[in-house]
């Protein structure tokens, strides 16, 4: 990712973020046969060192779902949920009422991975259609740990090229259940140029 993103780049990324999150909401709604609403996603380029502060500090326990992207574009995408949102998400998905002290079971973790798969997939499909570039995503991997530790994985990937990330905050609602999730997209440097070129921005 480049440091010299202008307003036009940001508009394009924001629009892709909108379409991707829109697709994800539709997919979720259809799968669950429930009405799910979405706030307009917030798209930002954030300095990596500030990311964990935004999601509650280095020691805040979060779920990170990570997929590798291959094909015309190489990189990784991560979807991060704070613990409250993990519970809301599972309560929506599995029609449960998980309380804050409950320990998550195998079924819960598996559902989380699957939802991560759908949500990252929706975003990547939107990006792929707009750019005409193929993006194949790997099986999702899940980690439950301190935000700092989970974010160290994309931070290190980024550490090789630059210090900022594309950061998209999404907010879904189903009834009074609220799920705030964060997408972190990390294309390799050349892949980022490819995306921008195919969108006609550079």
């Amino acid at each position: 990712m480049q440091d010299n993103l202008n307003d036009m780049h940001m508009d394009v990324l924001r629009e892709i973020g909108n379409i991707g999150a829109g697709n994800a909401t539709t997919a979720l709604s259809q799968m669950l046969n429930k009405s799910i609403t979405m706030q307009v996603p917030e798209v930002n380029i954030v300095e990596f060192k500030n990311v964990s502060a935004i999601i509650g500090g280095e020691e805040n326990i979060v779920a990170g779902i990570l997929v590798k992207i291959s094909g015309d574009i190489e990189g990784i995408m991560m979807y991060v949920l704070e613990y409250d949102s993990v519970r809301s998400m599972l309560n929506i998905l599995l029609n449960k009422n998980i309380a804050s002290e409950d320990i998550l079971g195998e079924m819960d973790l598996s559902a989380l991975k699957e939802i991560g798969n759908i949500l990252t997939g929706s975003y990547l499909t939107a990006l792929s259609k707009l750019t005409n570039l193929t993006m194949i995503q790997s099986i999702p991997k899940l980690a439950f740990d301190m935000a700092g530790a989970i974010l160290s994985v994309p931070a290190i990937l980024f550490g090789k090229t630059c210090d900022s990330v594309l950061f998209i905050k999404t907010d879904f609602n189903q009834g009074d259940r609220d799920v705030v999730g964060y997408y972190i997209l990390i294309p390799e440097a050349q892949s980022f140029d490819k995306i921008m070129k195919s969108l006609g921005v550079i």
Binding site: S52, E58, E59, M146, G148, A149, L151, S152, I156
Partner: peptide, 23 residues
Amino acid sequence: VGMADFNIVKNPGMITTLGLGSC
């Protein structure tokens, strides 16, 4: 100490870093 950072501390201080992963 933050990520990609270093520092020192003297007696009787404590030095810490939070949420180490692959670092």
